[in-house]
Amino acid sequence: MPDFVVNARNLRKIYAGEVVVDDIQLNIRRGECFGLLGPNGAGKTTTLRMLLGLTPPDGGELNVLGFEIPRQARQMHARMGLVPQGDNLDPDFSVAQNLRTYARYFGIPRSELDQRLPQLLAFASLEHKADAGISTLSGGMKRRLTMARALVNDPELVVLDEPTTGLDPQARQLIWQRLRELLAQGKSLILTTHYMDEAQRLCDRLAIMDNGHILVEESPAELICQHIEPQVIEVFGPGVEQWGVDCGRNLAQRLEQVGETLFCYAEDEQPVLASLHQFPQLQFIHRRANLEDVFLKLTGKELRDA
């Protein structure tokens, strides 16, 4: 059994003369949850589509689950599950029919699926909804059904493209719990997300992409430790700029103004907090540095509309 579920060497994609994925290297280990992060237009989706064999690369070598991609994509798909960004369930079918129909795409015999159906419905927490139409499901239910659908073939690798986008907090918690169950079963996960808390919580390792490059590839804890000061104080209120010039820049290692908020990054938060207590008109939030701080530091803070 190979140690890696994905091996990409010098993977490259060019659209209309523009390099959107620029010779990236990617090694994703078996059994880990790997996150692919990056602002819009960074090349995440193109990278993901190449891994799935849906976009032919313009250069490099790519191996997924031991299969050469895109040439052997069909064999690889038999052992992989995909949870796409938009739910593309069959709206004319019930919950159970969606699972049965999808299983047929894999050539799974009906009797075999019928045996596993209760298990799949339980995974999606939709036991009582087997015969319900898709239009009667909430967003969270649809996403869970899409996840169950990705498991009809008991895959080794599950790829999730923004699995919790658009869901309410309760629905997200349930999805996270289910993803942990999959990891406990020894499955490998690859996920993209815009939620840094989600990536920090779930991913064993992650890569941050921008402009077609992989900027860093590490565990979330390592990334925070290596790339950013441990303490963050967000300051806002009248006179925040002046405070930054007079006091903040001498007390914190790094300052960054984003909109009306001044971010102070410090090794030691005490001098900053002591200073702020003398300026009652300023409000502040003190917290530990997190993945979002790393992400913004590495990819910049300007808005991406791509």
Partner: peptide
Amino acid sequence: VQETWAAMMAAPLN
């Protein structure tokens, strides 16, 4: 609209 084909192409269908 329904992306039924996309769902199929993620399975072993081309």
